[in-house]
Design a protein around this nucleic acid. Structure first.
Lengths: 295, 295
DNA sequence: CTCCGGCCATCAGGAGAACTGATGCCCGTC
DNA sequence: GACGGGCATCAGTTCTCCTGATGGCCGGAG
């Protein structure tokens, strides 16, 4: 299970080519072939079908592990590098689309900041590997529970903002007149599926707790990250959407109804590489930013 | 960041000795010394102080990463091995102390089962590395939220049981007459600190959401795993305890008051190595167990 | 104070791993 | 049926990594 072998394996799987992976990694094709053979011999399983090159079931499984593993290695290296490196002059913040809360915008220093918009699930990785100095992630959780984030490295997460959730319906929808809605009422409705911009359907199914795979059928799938696009789509009758109440309100053609059960909120969290016990507060622009966010 | 080097590093750190680690790992002392030197050169940081041998701050940090990393490597290997290996005749279940819910006990097959009691945070690792075929973990969470578990490998977690939480007070306690208690009322009380048996204090502080390190002061610390010991200690006035209501009730000398805010429950979850998409349900004793647990 | 013993660092040498380059083989394509 | 792209295999070389020996440092005992 040498990381080098894993790295070649994921590259081969991604490119579906031994010789392509060799070019990308700076090896000869022969070396790549030997890497894969060594991995397969080590695990005692075929990992790739040849001609065409594609992962076997076991290979698919290894891809999941390898991705997480390599990310964690990069994270560890980046984290240790922070011990030695001088603090950078410019602050890079990775943020998911709905995490740009007014409080965040107000706290950002006026100069020397790079703001990088990423998909929700890529923000922790960016902070862990040092691509960003801090992260802002949003998500849905119970009021007193932290967001569920992949733990690629030790993080310190602090709450930045919390808003109620609301269901967005087209104006003529039968449930549009309600004062509040329960998720149970909406299991059989058609939903917009927007993993990047809003709330993914599989997350809804998990929260709802019913039998896996049932309910919350997808209508249109939206692969962008703009919540206003979601609102417009919902108003046009392409499916329901679940969004933070302040974002969802006041859109022509759409009606916003607060979600009353289960008790869930939309929360934005600040993600920092966890300081070792007894470490000083961060200085420079990062310190400025975090103090203004908290204070 | 070679895993071999990390393995020797954690061993050296644990034994506080180069030559001791060499003996344990089957290397010469020279090799161990070179491993550490290579790691320190690679990261550009001193990791260990010599004479006495002890980790530097950077070394402490590396220990956190290395532990998680090595565990994940073992987990990946064990997971892939399951693809090849025949299903075992005997079923091993890892469980934390409070996860032995009556429903669980009823679902266990009559023969061929090994039940291994572990600390709460070691159960996921045991399932991931294949030491156990399934895990049962308990913990505190919001009613509709899954337990927070370290993701050393892809898991499938399903809810097994959920009970309200209750505060255990000695009979004469000023708050003993209440019908319900809020966590806020109890910030300044003295609590039993029992990471293995009950609910750890740092978890309480995190749930409460107040400033880090304040509140929920520790009285006696109990390092065993028997909840009845906790109850007895609480009845004797050694501090408050937070336990599932069914466990806490009916103990002489102690009063049980339900926790009403924040809305938290004690949940037991079944932990299985995540089946690859489209994989058949587990067979044999494991299939029998999971079906009875769910059905 | 000095000697001794334990412990880590360093060095040179050798076994083995790993990569390269050449060649062979298989399959899909024209 | 010939061709070509692409993976497997093999031999040779390079470089890595481990061993065994040696030296220096520190602490404890006499």
């Amino acid at each position: 299970m040498d990381p080098h072998l894993l790295r070649t394996y994921v590259t081969v799987a991604r490119l579906a080519s031994f010789s392509g992976a060799a070019r990308e990694l700076g090896y000869t094709q022969s070396a790549v072939s030997q890497h894969i053979a060594a991995l397969e011999a080590d695990l005692g399983l075929p990992l790739l079908a040849r001609r065409p090159v594609a992962p076997t079931p076991a290979g698919e499984r290894l891809l999941e592990h390898a991705g997480a593993l390599l990310l964690r290695i990069d994270a560890a290296r980046a984290d240790l590098d922070r011990f030695a490196a001088a603090p950078r002059a410019t602050l890079t913040v990775a943020a998911s689309a709905l995490a740009l809360h007014p409080r965040v915008l107000a706290a950002l220093p006026a100069t020397g900041v790079t703001l990088r918009a990423l998909d929700r699930d890529r923000v922790p990785g960016a902070v862990a590997t040092g691509e960003a100095d801090a992260g802002l992630v949003d998500g849905v959780a119970a009021p007193s529970d932290p967001l569920r984030l992949p733990d690629v490295a030790p993080f310190a997460a602090t709450r930045v903002a919390e808003e109620p959730l609301a269901v967005v319906l087209p104006a003529g929808h039968p449930l549009a007149g309600r004062r509040g809605l329960r998720l149970t009422d909406l299991v059989d409705a058609r939903w917009l599926d927007a993993p990047a911009a809003g709330i993914a359907l599989d997350r809804l199914r998990a929260v709802h707790g019913g039998p896996a795979g049932r309910g919350f059928r997808a209508a249109l799938r939206y692969e962008g990250s703009d919540p206003r696009a979601l609102l417009a789509l919902s108003a046009a009758g392409h499916g329901l959407a679940l969004l933070p109440l302040p974002v969802a309100e006041g859109v022509p053609g759409a009606v916003t109804v607060p979600l009353v059960a289960p008790r869930l909120v939309h929360r934005t969290e600040l993600l920092l590489p966890a300081a070792p016990a007894g470490q000083a507060e961060p200085g420079g622009r990062l310190g400025e930013f975090t103090r203004r966010l908290r204070g």
